[in-house]
Amino acid sequence: SGWQYDTQCSLAGVGIEMGDWQEVWDENTGCYYYWNTQTNEVTWELPQYLATQVQGLQHYQP
């Protein structure tokens, strides 16, 4: 899939279920990364769990 979410945008106002994931701001890069509080996994790309929800939002315009 060529769909890419801009990680400089916060998910805070989007209104999706974050589940075990937390969004963390990284000052050095000026982007958010994502931290799974259960598994301690850290990812710079939007986790599939969140990406599926964001893509499903009608009002979200990339």
Rank of each mutant, 00 (worst) to 15 (best):
Q55M: 10
W3V: 13
Q38Y: 14
Q61N: 10
I16M: 14
V24L: 11
T52A: 14
T7V: 07
Q55I: 06
L46P: 04
Y49V: 10
P62N: 15
L11F: 01
C31K: 13
Q8I: 04
Q4A: 04
H59D: 15
G15I: 02
E41V: 06
T37W: 06
G15Q: 14
L11R: 01
G13C: 10
G56D: 15
V42I: 08
E27A: 13
T7I: 04
A12Y: 12
T43G: 04
W44V: 10
E45T: 11
L11S: 03
T29R: 14
A51N: 07
Y32M: 03
T29D: 12
D26Y: 06
S1M: 15
L46H: 02
Y49D: 12
V24D: 08
T7A: 13
C9P: 05
Q53V: 01
G19A: 10
L50Q: 01
G13V: 04
N28P: 09
E23V: 00
Y34N: 01
Q4H: 14
Q22I: 07
W3N: 15
E45D: 09
E41T: 06
Q8M: 10
G15M: 06
E23K: 02
Q8T: 15
S1W: 11
G30V: 08
L57E: 10
V14D: 06
Y49S: 14
Y32W: 03
Q38R: 13
H59W: 06
L46S: 01
T29Q: 10
Y32T: 01
Q22A: 10
V24T: 12
E41C: 04
L11Q: 00
Y32Q: 00
T37Y: 07
G56N: 13
I16A: 05
G56C: 07
T52W: 06
N36D: 02
T39N: 10
P62C: 12
V42D: 05
T43W: 02
N36G: 02
E41S: 05
Y5L: 04
D6F: 03
D6G: 09
V14N: 11
Q22E: 13
W21H: 06
W21I: 00
G30F: 05
D6K: 13
N40L: 11
D26M: 10
W44S: 12
Y32I: 06
Q38M: 10
V24C: 09
H59E: 14
T37H: 12
Y34I: 04
N28C: 12
L57H: 11
T52Y: 07
G13N: 04
N40P: 00
Q53F: 02
W44N: 14
E17S: 09
W25F: 09
E23L: 02
Y5S: 06
I16S: 03
N36M: 02
T37K: 14
C9E: 14
M18N: 00
Q58D: 06
E45S: 10
D26Q: 08
E27T: 08
P47M: 01
L11V: 08
E17Q: 12
Q61F: 07
W35S: 13
A51M: 07
V54C: 09
T43L: 10
G19M: 03
S1E: 13
Y33F: 06
E27N: 10
G30H: 01
Q22S: 09
G30Q: 13
E23H: 04
N40S: 11
Y33N: 06
N36V: 00
W3P: 09
S10E: 08
M18A: 01
I16C: 05
Y33G: 03
Q55F: 12
Q58E: 11
G30W: 07
Y33E: 04
E45A: 08
S10Y: 02
Y49M: 10
D26A: 08
W21P: 01
L57F: 13
Q55T: 08
Y49L: 10
W35G: 06
D26E: 09
Q61E: 13
Y5I: 04
E45C: 10
L11A: 01
Q48A: 12
Y34P: 00
P47L: 00
Q22Y: 02
T43R: 07
E23D: 04
Y60D: 15
Y34R: 02
V54Y: 06
G30D: 13
G30M: 08
D26F: 06
Y49K: 08
W44D: 04
L46V: 06
G2E: 15
G2M: 15
T37F: 09
Q48D: 13
Y33I: 03
Y33R: 08
Y34F: 08
N28I: 15
T52I: 13
C9I: 09
Q58R: 07
M18R: 02
T52Q: 08
C31S: 13
G2L: 12
T29H: 12
T37L: 09
A12H: 08
E45R: 09
A12K: 09
Q55G: 07
G13H: 09
P47E: 00
Q58K: 14
S10D: 03
G13R: 08
V14W: 13
E17G: 05
Y5E: 08
W35C: 15
E41N: 05
G15V: 03
M18D: 00
W3D: 12
Q8V: 08
N40K: 08
Q53A: 04
Q4N: 15
W21Q: 01
T43A: 10
G19P: 00
W44R: 13
L50E: 03
Q53P: 02
E45Y: 03
T43I: 01
S10V: 01
W25D: 07
E45I: 10
W35E: 15
G2F: 14
E17C: 05
Y49N: 09
G30L: 04
